[in-house]
Amino acid sequence: MSRTMEWAARAEHLRGISRKVVIAAVGAFAKTVSSLLNTAAVHNADTLLRLVRSRPNCVPLINVSNHMSTLDDPVMWGFKGFPIFDTKLARWVLAAEDICFKNALYSYIFRVGKCIPITRGGGIYQEHMIEALERLKDGEWLHTFPEGKVYQEDVPIRRLKWGTASLIVRAPITPIVLPIVHHGFHEVMPEKYMFGRRPPVPLWNKKIDIIIGDPIEFDLPAMRQKAISQSRNESFPTIGWPSTPDGLDELAQRCLYTAISEQIRAAMERLRCFSKSFVKSWVGSNLPKSEIKVF
């Protein structure tokens, strides 16, 4: 399978002018929705800013977050102090092919905006996952929604898809993995607003909170050995995955991806529980928008 408009995603495409235009337009939109039309509060923003701007050379960054609306990315980056207009620092993001790449115009805009199309249900070895690995090899920042789709109910984080876990394992340099949980985007862009459809424009006067955690630490050598041991007693149906460079067969990969995904899910769930107390603490303060502290 060929990669959808990969040429438009290259930094040198049209000397980078088209990327600057799209990133600037998207950044202005994100700032407007997040900081002007609505009120956003962020916890632990310094950790994200530090990792985006000055992580170790060539070390990639993967963000994992819940997915409450089609606006989560890019609006979640529109908070005060975030360098959303910087094309070099801008994230790459895995985006649903059936939503963001449904025609040539959308495909071009999203590609220029550093989006990688993902076919939901296409598996972890689809061609565009290989492209995501190439971006990680370059030491880039990649944002993912490991739940795999939009969920607007305020319920515990669901079982995660294996795609993000597979990227962590298969990346040439193990990425830093940073969990983020947000709340409020489901009110800015509800899935069923009028006649069961989304509103034509983002809603306003809503409260958004973004909880940024600390990097998740994985003991990958120990987790690999445990996965190999567990796989000897398992009998999952296999579909012919290739072995990884370090020799994990499909059964061992499944055990390993399950363990990594559960560790990520648990970290996100802890942030979700923390966000409830965080929301209560600043919603009850009745502070005007200009006095909401971003920290």
Rank of each mutant, 00 (worst) to 15 (best):
F85R: 14
M223S: 01
Q126K: 06
R55Y: 06
D219R: 01
G16N: 06
D154Q: 15
L14H: 14
E6R: 13
S235K: 15
V177C: 05
E291N: 10
S65V: 12
W241D: 01
I173H: 01
P202H: 04
I260Q: 01
M1C: 09
H128S: 06
K293Y: 14
H183G: 04
K280F: 12
V279S: 05
F101Y: 15
L14E: 10
A266Q: 15
D154T: 13
I130L: 11
S231W: 11
R198G: 00
L271G: 00
F236T: 08
T144P: 04
S65P: 13
I99K: 08
N233H: 15
L71G: 04
T244V: 09
R265C: 00
I292C: 04
P56E: 01
A9V: 09
P245G: 00
M189L: 05
L51P: 11
C255V: 11
G247N: 02
P146T: 05
P242I: 09
S277L: 12
K276N: 04
I118R: 03
A24W: 15
G78P: 10
S65A: 15
D72M: 08
E153C: 07
S261Q: 04
L14A: 07
V22P: 15
S2E: 13
L142M: 03
D98N: 08
K289A: 11
L51E: 06
F295E: 10
G81V: 12
V169L: 07
I62S: 04
E217K: 12
S107N: 04
E291V: 10
E191G: 14
T144F: 06
K161S: 01
A132H: 04
W7L: 10
K114Y: 12
D209H: 10
V59F: 02
H13G: 03
R224L: 01
D46K: 14
E217W: 14
I211G: 02
T119C: 05
I118D: 00
L167P: 05
D138S: 04
A41Y: 06
A165P: 00
E262R: 00
P242V: 09
V150W: 12
C100T: 08
I264G: 00
L51D: 06
W141A: 09
S54D: 14
H13R: 06
Q225E: 15
A171W: 03
E291H: 14
R3H: 14
E234S: 03
I264L: 01
M223H: 00
L178F: 13
A222L: 03
L61I: 10
I157N: 03
F79V: 04
N205C: 07
E187N: 06
E187S: 05
P146A: 02
E147A: 03
W282R: 14
P117R: 07
A30N: 08
F29K: 09
M1H: 11
M5Y: 13
R224D: 00
V75M: 01
I116H: 02
L89V: 08
L37T: 05
N233L: 13
K192I: 09
R170V: 05
I292N: 07
V42I: 02
D209R: 08
Q126G: 01
N286Q: 15
S290T: 14
P74T: 13
D246I: 09
V169G: 02
K149Q: 14
I264W: 01
E131Y: 14
G113F: 13
L142S: 02
A30G: 03
L142I: 07
S166V: 03
A8L: 15
A252G: 05
I260N: 00
M129E: 10
M76T: 15
M223L: 01
N66D: 13
V112Y: 10
